Lab assay of single mutants.
Amino acid sequence: MSGNGNAAATAEENSPKMRVIRVGTRKSQLARIQTDSVVATLKASYPGLQFEIIAMSTTGDKILDTALSKIGEKSLFTKELEHALEKNEVDLVVHSLKDLPTVLPPGFTIGAICKRENPHDAVVFHPKFVGKTLETLPEKSVVGTSSLRRAAQLQRKFPHLEFRSIRGNLNTRLRKLDEQQEFSAIILATAGLQRMGWHNRVGQILHPEECMYAVGQGALGVEVRAKDQDILDLVGVLHDPETLLRCIAERAFLRHLEGGCSVPVAVHTAMKDGQLYLTGGVWSLDGSDSIQETMQATIHVPAQHEDGPEDDPQLVGITARNIPRGPQLAAQNLGISLANLLLSKGAKNILDVARQLNDAH
């Protein structure tokens, strides 16, 4: 009898209710805020589980004197976190989706994509230029951005401005803007500013005609071990179906173009009346040469937790077992079709030249 009692006690200790789920994140304040929001949602869904947040620095956090596009290494903000995932030191990792490459290392998958916040870019102005827009900034004003995508589009749109690289986390960039006289304004992701509670610093939100956004911008991705079915089931509740389908289309477009950090590629997606609209573009580094096109596809946005595919093969690095396969494939095909259209119009040449120029500098 006593033996059975011990077995029952052991089973209770090993039951999922007692389990601590370890969540990996970057150390920056924004990353911690984003991770806290994901953990809060998981806690609400699984009140019996405990969650421990483990923060670590990544290569991208450490190399702050070089433009991201020049470092010449993929997975700048993800490699150390993936290493911890691989060694079973954490069970899942919360990322900004735009930091996750469209091809993940073997053994990993994006197990959830959370509801997207505003994906557009924002302009934050130096205190002396508050009330201005990019259009009304004085001639030769210097605007800071760490992104080739932003610089290429904005140089084309605002030729009277000069664009220079600015690195560091959000706090560091804002301090550089406010305390030094080098920059009249800087460009940042609206979602990051909003998550930090800095709505009052948003001086201008850039519309798609001015600057399309990065693939996955404004959404959070939760990376897990691809074979860890328990954790895949656990994080599945975080999937937002519309965000998922938009981001599958965007990531398929980028992957098929073979774009990345070192080339200016941008997108804009919208879901309306059962249609998914995808606009994508590529630019030369100075913005003088560009190709942009829009395509659409009829896609039914499923309700969360309709029964999805059981075999769960990944699409552009994403596993969404609780979302039907048909809409996911339709979104992926839309991204591939748009990429093929741009490639047929000469996108590869623009991107190759951009890559060579970026590598040469």
Rank of each mutant, 00 (worst) to 15 (best):
A360S: 11
D312R: 12
K27T: 09
I299K: 05
G308L: 11
V94E: 03
M212G: 14
M56N: 06
V265D: 01
H256W: 15
I54Q: 03
D61V: 01
L134N: 01
P47S: 11
V265F: 01
W283E: 01
A112N: 01
H256Y: 05
F77N: 01
L100G: 01
L97R: 01
K176H: 09
L276F: 04
H305D: 14
V316S: 09
P208A: 07
L30Y: 04
I110H: 04
N349D: 12
Q332W: 13
V235G: 04
E135R: 13
G24P: 01
S28T: 13
E82Q: 06
I166R: 04
V130W: 06
V124T: 06
S344G: 14
K176Y: 10
T58R: 01
Q153S: 08
L188N: 06
S75K: 15
W198F: 11
I21H: 07
G197T: 04
D61H: 05
D99F: 01
A226Q: 12
Y46C: 09
L76D: 12
P127T: 11
Q296I: 07
M56R: 08
I110K: 04
E162R: 12
L357I: 14
L170V: 11
T190G: 11
H239D: 14
D289F: 14
E89S: 13
T172K: 08
G192M: 05
Q332M: 15
E89F: 12
L315C: 15
G60Q: 07
L154K: 05
G287Y: 06
K227D: 15
A84D: 08
G192L: 01
G281V: 10
E250M: 01
I53H: 01
A331P: 01
W283A: 04
H268M: 15
I350L: 04
A55I: 08
F125L: 11
G274R: 05
T35F: 01
S290C: 04
K345E: 01
G131P: 06
Y277L: 12
P324Y: 07
R325W: 13
K272N: 14
E209M: 05
L342F: 15
A330V: 14
K98F: 01
V93N: 08
H207A: 14
G218C: 01
V222S: 01
F253N: 01
S28E: 01
R251G: 01
M56P: 05
V94S: 01
T145G: 06
G203E: 05
C261P: 01
V90F: 05
M271T: 06
E80L: 06
L245F: 06
G308P: 05
S45D: 12
I187G: 06
Q50K: 14
V316F: 13
H126I: 15
S146V: 08
L49K: 07
N322K: 10
S57L: 09
R26N: 01
A214E: 05
H160S: 10
V124Q: 04
H160T: 13
F108G: 07
V222Q: 01
G259K: 15
G24Q: 01
L100D: 01
V265S: 01
H160K: 14
T298F: 06
I33K: 01
M56D: 14
C211S: 11
G60N: 08
G308R: 07
D228R: 13
V215E: 08
L351I: 08
H126M: 08
G317K: 01
A347C: 04
I63M: 13
E258C: 15
H160A: 05
F108K: 01
L338F: 01
R255M: 13
P119V: 10
G280R: 03
D91I: 04
D289P: 15
F77L: 01
Q194I: 01
A339V: 10
R175G: 10
V222Y: 01
L42N: 01
V38K: 01
A31W: 01
D359M: 01
R355C: 01
E135S: 08
A252Y: 01
A219C: 01
L30Q: 01
A266R: 04
Q155G: 11
S75I: 09
F77E: 01
V215F: 05
M196F: 14
C247E: 04
L134A: 08
S262L: 01
I187K: 01
G203T: 01
H160M: 14
Q292C: 12
V224M: 15
T25I: 05
D228L: 03
A55L: 10
S45W: 10
L357C: 01
L285W: 08
V353G: 07
E139S: 09
G144P: 01
T109W: 06
L343N: 15
C261N: 01
V94Y: 03
V103H: 01
S290F: 13
R355S: 15
I71M: 15
I323R: 07
T136P: 05
R321P: 07
H199S: 13
M196L: 12
D289T: 15
G24L: 09
Q275N: 03
A226M: 15
H305W: 09
M295S: 04
K79L: 08
V263G: 01
R195G: 04
N349I: 06
I336S: 15
V215L: 07
I33P: 01
K43E: 09
Q204H: 12
A226L: 08
A44H: 09
E52Y: 10
G192E: 05
I63V: 08
P309T: 07
E89N: 13
Q155K: 13
E258R: 01
D233G: 07
P159F: 08
S146W: 10
E210P: 01
G192C: 11
V265I: 11
A31H: 01
Q194C: 03
R149W: 03
K348M: 05
L188I: 03
T294F: 09
G24H: 01
I323T: 08
E250P: 01
R156P: 13
T78E: 01
L342W: 03
V282L: 06
A320L: 08
L276I: 05
A152E: 05
Q153V: 06
D307S: 08
E73A: 09
Q153I: 03
G260R: 01
E258K: 14
R321M: 07
I299D: 12
Q292T: 10
D312C: 14
S75E: 05
L276H: 01
E162K: 14
T78Q: 09
R251M: 10
P324Q: 10
A189Y: 01
I205L: 14
S69L: 09
Q204T: 01
D65K: 14
D99W: 01
P159N: 13
N200W: 13
I336W: 13
K128D: 08
F158K: 06
I113L: 13
H199F: 15
E89Y: 13
S290M: 15
D312V: 06
I33N: 11
Q34R: 01
F253W: 04
T319S: 11
I299Y: 12
L351M: 14
E310H: 15
T66N: 10
L285E: 05
Q194S: 04
S75A: 13
W283F: 01
F108H: 01
C261S: 01
G216M: 03
G259V: 05
R22Y: 09
Q296E: 11
T41E: 11
A331D: 07
Q314R: 01
A151G: 11
Q34E: 01
S28D: 01
D311C: 01
H199Q: 06
L351Y: 12
N322M: 10
S146C: 05
D228W: 01
K176F: 13
C247H: 01
V39T: 08
I350H: 15
L343Q: 07
K62H: 01
Q275K: 12
G221C: 10
V90I: 11
H300P: 10
V222G: 01
G287M: 14
V94T: 06
G144H: 01
A55E: 15
Q181E: 14
Y213V: 01
T298W: 12
L232T: 12
A84V: 07
V282C: 08
T102M: 08
A84G: 07
P302R: 04
F77Q: 04
A219G: 08
E250G: 01
A191F: 04
V224H: 01
H95D: 04
T58I: 05
D230A: 05
I205N: 10
G216E: 01
K98R: 01
S75L: 11
H160I: 10
G72A: 10
R201Y: 15
V130L: 07
D311G: 14
V202N: 01
P327S: 05
M212I: 15
T78V: 10
M56A: 12
I291V: 07
V263F: 08
H305K: 03
K176E: 08
E86Q: 12
P309C: 04
V39L: 09
Q194F: 01
P138D: 10
T294L: 09
T102A: 12
S141P: 04
A270Q: 13
K128I: 12
Q181C: 01
P47A: 06
A249N: 01
G48N: 15
M212Q: 03
A67I: 15
I54N: 09
T145E: 01
T269K: 01
H305N: 13
A249H: 01
E209H: 09
Q204G: 07
Q314W: 10
S284T: 15
L85Q: 06
C247A: 15
V124C: 09
T133F: 05
C261A: 01
E135T: 11
Q275Y: 01
Q204P: 08
